[in-house]
Design a protein around this nucleic acid. Structure first.
Lengths: 182, 182
DNA sequence: TGTAGCATGTAAGCCGTTACATGATTGA
DNA sequence: TCAATCATGTAACGGCTTACATGCTACA
């Protein structure tokens, strides 16, 4: 029987799969957090450091990752690699689990609903601020997209990044149109 | 000093504001859940029933809502109304709080990242399923939009619904384009 | 020498869910 | 009479965050 994990656990396992295909030494918890900040953050969550270490302990417990002391550097660190069992569990999850609908927590839309309680100009300012925040976000994601390039090994992550970029573009267009109707 | 509440608390407070502008008798926890299912769900969350009652207790504690036994019907229920203090707290929140960036938890995008571990056809099937799930969602939101009509009192909620519809349309377009590149 | 980044954890606590429990009313 | 809906809660627990604690290394 397969231990059932949270989606976040599988997401981290996914990051470890990509690592295993390009390197042999694994990732530290710290490095895993950096990867999450670069990728997962845009369409899932980037767990807190403390959460990363907790998940790594959990995944070690189920045998899905294996941690080993790395003494090759200046400092001894623990590096984690995905195990065959972990890879299998991840694949089973991909094949069999329910595909839940995305969950969007959108504080700007929530506030807009209460626009009648806001002052004149305040709604506009909020939407302008949001458009510029999206632009910032987009730039960050663009940098990630450029890093992925056209490397076949990360063709799917690149597609996800493209999806994200198109989403941000659509969002800006929608909000700017909405802004003009106020 | 104002008690600091979760965003979900303010969202419920917002629903109670709309009620207060159209009726005088308030909402039961059960009705509040129904409103959340119709509106909040699309761009925030619709809390579980148990959470609704917990929040109502909390909001009663801070004096932001007031519950009263309603014995006018066949059955005695508790109906909640927002208080002037609650309305003020909500407005303060609208004016002063940080506008966090939306949070998207997108299981489909997450799985797509791991597309290289999925079988041929499996990615396509997943995306097709997603497109049809979005279509279903869109229909639900469309029904809500129609209910709002062009009633001035809910002009802002109507705009939020329009935003949601445009978002679903964009999502379908993006995914269908992506689908063709596989 | 001091600050930023690397590296790893524990503890407390919030938010929210599912499961469980109870019971009234409406309508087929 | 039986199922669906209305209506209200408690208990247990999972997931995740913030705050706190510690210490090494690189570099300006």
């Amino acid at each position: 029987m397969t231990a059932s994990l949270s989606t976040t656990s599988y997401a981290l396992l996914g990051l470890l799969v990509f690592d295993s295909e390009t390197s042999e030494h694994g990732l530290t918890g710290y490095e895993l957090k950096q990867r999450a900040d670069r990728t997962l953050r845009f369409y899932w969550v980037s767990p807190a450091m403390s959460q990363i270490y907790t998940e790594l302990d959990r995944l070690s417990g189920t045998g899905y990752v294996q941690g080993a002391d790395d003494t090759s550097g200046k400092r001894t660190t623990r590096r984690f690699r995905i195990t065959p069992a972990g890879r299998e569990s991840l694949e089973t999850w991909l094949h069999t689990s329910e595909h839940e609908f995305p969950m969007l927590k959108h504080p700007i839309a929530l506030r807009l609903m209460l626009g009648s309680l806001m002052g004149p100009g305040e709604v506009e300012a909020m939407l302008d601020g949001y458009v510029s925040a999206v632009a910032d976000r987009r730039k960050e994601l663009e940098a990630v997209r450029e890093m992925l390039g056209d490397n076949e090994a990360v063709a799917y992550p690149a597609r996800v990044a493209d999806w994200g970029l198109a989403y941000y573009d659509a969002e800006v267009e929608i909000v700017e149109k909405l802004r003009r109707t106020l």
